[in-house]
Simulated assay, not measured.
Amino acid sequence: MSQNEIAISVQGLKKSYKKVPVLTGVDFEVKTGSIFALLGSNGAGKTTIVRILTTLLQQDQGNVIVNGYNVASKPEQVRQSISLTGQFAAVDEILTGRENLVMIAQLRHLKDARQVATDLLHRFGLTEAADRRVATYSGGMRRRLDIAMSLVGKPPLIFLDEPTTGLDPEVRLEFWQIVKELAADGTTVFLTTQYLEEAEQLADRIAILHEGKIIVSGTLAELKQLFPPAKMEYIEKQPGLEEIFLAIIGKKTTK
């Protein structure tokens, strides 16, 4: 695979906090234009990986390349080519929805900031609320605005760190559709999620992080092959990702 076809390359990534190892040798690649889902229990280190990939945290060891740039030596170039949406909406409540978007567009030095804002407000169903202060928005509206802000300037790579936490099922389905459209347009999406159904619905490839390492990585079909055959005999339907995840974690934990 050529360098242009790889959006993220991680080799031997290690990170400890106060001598407590969190990442103990993480390796994976993310193909350009794909949706890559990183799964793991709470505290597994998913957010630590996202923070390193987005230059918010320095790794202890390892080689990390994002959009062709080394995160340690070229952090500014990495930041200019990515966008990050975390678990909590990073919107300014004092400003209106439109003002939030215009501000981000201006910070990214886009020519027609107001038109960019108008287009995104329409796309995310926020036109009617555009000129209301964000403090009056519902949780779902704030999340939609937050994701709209992350798309200003059409970054080629978007990090979504547990982006649908706290959203109701209807808004979550809307969000899934948006992510699918992004990937269809060629945007690379790196997703961490606590909702296994989300990874099942969206991801081209899924990696499971456990005890500081990626223990399995592959398509959903490939992960299904790892489901213990003895258990397969007792279920009529194909195993879901939740069953596969628990079986794989369980297998690894008992060794």
Rank of each mutant, 00 (worst) to 15 (best):
A183I: 12
I158S: 08
L121C: 05
P156F: 06
A221R: 14
G212F: 11
G97I: 02
T54N: 04
P169L: 07
F175V: 12
N70K: 00
L107A: 14
P169H: 08
D60C: 06
P169W: 09
M232W: 13
T118K: 11
E198Y: 07
A184I: 03
M103G: 01
N42T: 09
A230N: 12
T118M: 02
L167S: 01
T127K: 15
T48M: 01
G45S: 05
G62C: 06
P169A: 07
S2T: 14
G139T: 12
L84H: 08
E93S: 12
L167P: 00
I6T: 14
L23R: 10
V91I: 11
N63V: 09
V78A: 01
L121N: 08
E243L: 07
I244P: 00
D204E: 07
K213T: 15
K74W: 00
P169K: 07
K213W: 00
A221I: 12
Q115M: 08
K14Y: 10
Y234M: 12
A230R: 15
G25R: 00
E236N: 15
E242A: 08
V152G: 09
Q77V: 03
Y137V: 07
R123L: 05
G45P: 01
I178T: 14
R79T: 13
Y234P: 00
A105W: 01
G86S: 13
D146R: 15
A105M: 06
V30E: 01
T253Y: 13
L38D: 07
D161M: 08
G153F: 06
P169T: 10
D60Y: 03
G86E: 10
T85N: 15
D92G: 01
A148K: 12
V66Q: 02
I208M: 04
G153I: 07
L38H: 04
E233W: 05
T24C: 14
S150E: 04
P228R: 12
Q77L: 13
Q177P: 01
V10Y: 04
S2G: 11
T253D: 15
K231R: 14
I208N: 05
L182N: 05
I52Y: 00
L126T: 00
L191T: 07
A37I: 04
W176C: 12
Q61W: 01
K237T: 14
T24E: 15
I235K: 02
V171N: 09
Q87L: 07
T136H: 09
T136I: 01
K252T: 10
N67W: 03
L95H: 11
L182E: 08
N67R: 09
K31R: 13
G212M: 11
R205D: 07
S73Q: 11
L157N: 05
L191N: 04
I214W: 02
I8G: 05
L151C: 09
G62M: 02
L84Q: 10
D168C: 04
R98N: 03
N70L: 03
F124R: 09
P75T: 08
A129C: 10
A7G: 11
Q106K: 15
I104S: 00
R123Y: 05
P163V: 14
T193R: 05
T32Y: 04
V216K: 12
F245A: 09
K255M: 11
